[in-house]
């Protein structure tokens, strides 16, 4: 499956649609809840953490709904920042959920890719997930992480170089 195929499939899913103006919280919730929990999972590496982070992000958006110009973008920022915070906390003490993986022979190929991504620093991991899973543009990633587009590009370049050493 090529990147274009996956991108097309993601766009066909309700969860991957872009936020639109004038929508209600419930519309945003229904459209984004699955996409967001999967983004959180890919960054945090834990389903439990992903579910908690996504729940908290929606709560935050709900409470500030009337003050948000772009609730969809704010939601993504909450999810990504929450997942990165959880990742940093776990690096300081907790064991990763996948720290004790099954034997190599029975592990599917995508697990190797995910492991390699999870060895990246939290910021680099977020860049990779937002670019290659969420299919965001450089500018959209810059908006989510609130960093310059140039930093996104250089960060992605470094992350890909690290991944290339492991995966290729």
């Amino acid at each position: 499956m090529t990147r274009r195929d996956v991108a097309a499939r993601l766009r066909a899913q309700p969860g991957a649609a872009r936020p639109s103006a004038g929508e209600t919280f419930d519309e945003l919730f229904l459209r984004e809840r699955q996409a967001m929990v999967r983004v959180a999972y890919l960054i945090a590496g834990s389903t439990a953490v992903a579910e908690e982070v996504t729940h908290d992000a929606f709560v935050t958006v709900y409470e500030r709904w009337d003050r948000l110009d772009q609730p969809g973008a704010y939601l993504r920022r909450c999810v990504v920042n929450g997942a990165m915070r959880a990742t940093r906390r776990r690096r300081h003490g907790e064991r990763l959920e996948a720290a004790d993986p099954p034997p190599e022979a029975v592990r599917p190929a995508h697990d190797h890719t995910l492991d390699a991504v999870h060895r990246l620093a939290p910021r680099a991991r977020s860049l990779v997930v937002l670019r290659y899973y969420a299919q965001l543009t450089v500018q959209e990633i810059a908006d989510v992480l609130q960093i310059p587009p140039g930093t996104v590009k250089s960060g992605l370049h470094r992350a890909l170089a690290e991944l290339r050493e492991v995966l290729v």
Binding site: M36, V37, R38, L42, H110
Partner: peptide, 19 residues
């Protein structure tokens, strides 16, 4: 392409519960 395909598959396989 590998990242795109594998991350999508991994997310689907893990299937975290949406809120």
């Amino acid at each position: 392409d590998r990242l795109t395909a594998d991350l999508a598959t991994a997310a689907q396989a893990a299937d975290p519960h949406p809120p």
